[in-house]
Nucleic acid binder design. Structure first.
Lengths: 230, 230
DNA sequence: CAATTTTGATAGTATTACTATTATCTTTGC
DNA sequence: GCAAAGATAATAGTAATACTATCAAAATTG
């Protein structure tokens, strides 16, 4: 993975930022430390002023990259889903066996994240925690519809569609591939959250991973119970 | 349902409020109009000052009922899940056939809400929209763990456990009843959200309901694929 | 009807989420 | 090597938020 992606730049829709943070040293520090700071104090308490003092820069300079902290969150989440999308494509590409392809796909979107050294200023493990804790806040707003029109969620939607196509390949008669895909991706984040904070309402923990739960679920759902009538 | 519940008061953990809003006229107006106002402008823009002017009362008076708008959200969500829990219990109680019981349970937690005239100051249809749009914000905070210890999420957790028990009744060998229950309840909210805002990544819409999707899913997951035996 | 409780009005505070302006520092093109 | 352009920093300012505190007026209750 490291060598494969080493020349790649994760593509984030450019309407999300004012100035591309990948284009400068300050921009990269903004991304690097916003991830650490949001993880540390939570998105609600996060401000550009606090970030500025962390990176020895000024609030007003950060505003030249992102219009608002909400846009910065959209940037981080788009980056994350694009990164997952690449992994999904690489992991499933050229895999002959359908069932193996399915399992790899589910694994990519549900597993606990491990460090990826390709992108030095981005800590994917910490970013994943942010996605688990804050992703919903990026679309649970009164502005979703207009922001959706602006294309701020294209990466995520493309990922869901790719995953649903893998389901359709396995079983073209299955009626709800999109809903299954969106349920699994969102549900995996939720199971990781429950594991950390509400362990009494999840089976995921030390012995069971969200990946096992969702692989079992997907196999049962996509394998029609054709014996006899059903 | 109306007559059955007419003497019931939905029980919300009393640590959530300073003064029980059910105990006064002002309290009830706070609940009634907070639901309408949050639905109208969104929780993020909602303030006690705006609510005060809607109900012809004062910001400071509302603070005597709820410590913060976050606590008010916890109140509304606890009320909602307790209301769903009652419906779950009534709908599945004394149902002989296991499969029918299962389907009724899934229906209660995934269906589109219809008005319930038992609670005159609470509009359940609007409250359901708030749950879909804002519920995640009630636990995606840095304070989850301490608030969980205080018991602010007991109602929701009890609902998930009840649902998981129904799954276990159907198939005691199924390994992930809690994760399935939490995935369905959260997933249903998500499918309703997608239906309204991201229709390209869900199959739910005019022809398909979240209930159909989740009933199909649950049946396939709980019915082991032991072809031959089944 | 007096005591108590509840509600309303007003004021005040620290912080947030920005915008605007001007000064300084860095890069680059020649 | 230097001027011009562009990027960054510093400072100031604003309206709104999320409260707390105090006191007066109104409503409830015993």
């Amino acid at each position: 993975m490291i060598s494969l992606l080493s020349n790649l730049k994760i593509a984030v829709p450019d309407k999300i930022f004012i100035k591309d943070p990948e284009s400068s040293n300050l921009g990269k520090r903004i991304i690097e430390h916003s991830i650490l700071l949001i993880d540390d104090i939570g998105f609600d308490s996060f401000t550009f002023k606090k970030l500025g003092s962390k990176i020895g820069s000024n609030e007003s300079s950060i505003y030249r990259y992102f219009e608002s902290k909400h846009k910065l969150l959209l940037y981080l989440t788009s980056w994350y889903w694009a990164w997952i999308e690449y992994q999904l494509v690489f992991a499933t590409h050229n895999v002959q066996d359908n069932k193996e392809q399915l399992n790899k796909a589910i694994e990519v979107v549900t597993r606990t994240i491990k460090e990826d050294l390709t992108f030095t200023h981005i800590n994917e493990v910490v970013l994943n925690r942010i996605i688990i804790n804050e992703y919903s806040k990026s679309f649970l707003t009164k502005e979703v519809d207009s922001e959706n029109k602006e294309g701020y969620f294209v990466v995520y939607k493309r990922l869901i569609r790719r995953l649903s196509e893998i389901f359709t390949n396995i079983n073209s008669n299955y009626e709800f591939p999109l809903s299954l895909a969106s349920t699994i991706v969102e549900g995996a984040l939720h199971q990781h959250f429950l594991k950390a904070h509400f362990s009494s309402i999840t089976d995921c923990g030390k012995d069971v991973t969200p990946t096992e739960f969702f692989i079992n679920l997907t196999q049962n759902v996509l394998t029609p119970i054709t014996n006899g009538s059903k």
